[in-house]
Design a protein around this nucleic acid. Sequence first.
DNA 1: CATTCTGTATCAATTTTTGATACAATAAAT
DNA 2: ATTTATTGTATCAAAAATTGATACAGAATG
Lengths: 145, 145
Amino acid sequence: MVNKQFANAVYVMTMLAIQKNKKTTADEKSELMNSEQLAVGANTNAVVIRRLICSLSRAGLIHTTRGKAGGVSLAKEPALITLNDIYTALELSDTISHNEKPADKECPVSCAIHQTIMTISEGSEKALGKYLESQKLSDLIKKIK
Amino acid sequence: MVNKQFANAVYVMTMLAIQKNKKTTADEKSELMNSEQLAVGANTNAVVIRRLICSLSRAGLIHTTRGKAGGVSLAKEPALITLNDIYTALELSDTISHNEKPADKECPVSCAIHQTIMTISEGSEKALGKYLESQKLSDLIKKIK
DNA sequence: CATTCTGTATCAATTTTTGATACAATAAAT
DNA sequence: ATTTATTGTATCAAAAATTGATACAGAATG
């Protein structure tokens, strides 16, 4: 993969998980972080973070609140969130993709290769997903603290 | 993945495998194909194919011969070649990559995330590799013929 | 009503990938 | 020997994808 979205999304989720754990009071607000704060540690632009936030929110992994004193927080316990949840939330393109150019009708292999690659792609995503599913966010933050 | 190298490499290897099986005589030449021929079915430029050929050759998956009447042929039986052999031959960048920007020294998560992503990346490649290793080139050509 | 967030559109900048031309190295064929 | 055809590579242009940056509407607080 050429893009850093997943790495940044994991950073965001880890920060939110730690923030959630830090919180001792029942004060919901104390676990809120905004895109500017998150952008610092990820060393990127706040809009890049907000784009990730949108995806993570749509997938139900975080809660966002707009307006003054708004921000972002985890929607679930870190033990209930896997890396696959984060990965699929981003809706990235498959790691293995086909050549979308038209096939050479004269060549049976060229005609069949599209379907072949599709099958391989599905198998690959499944294998990757299974691994990512085994990794919980709660495991990640243990190693950091 | 954004690139079509793997899809094209699988096409090339499939063509060569079928070519090898077609051959009834002991004439080694009859299984040779050149980059121009392979480029037609892949609907791309011959140089793109030659770049793939180089990688596949370096990995010992095919034999190449230069000069007039030169070309390419499989170096092993299709049953002894897996999709992982093809994948690793291309030396593509990892599907999950880290953000190579410097960490925020103030933030423990930012400092630790690099190593975290590396570990995830290794696990992902391993999972993907294991799946691809289970798929043999000989299985692919069965479905086409 | 001012302030400060997210959400999103838009465009520029950067990076990656692919395509194309050219040519040296090599081997066969004539 | 000379011509011809092929891989291997360098180089550059073109295209595509990703990221960065500015701007602003929508929303919630104070």
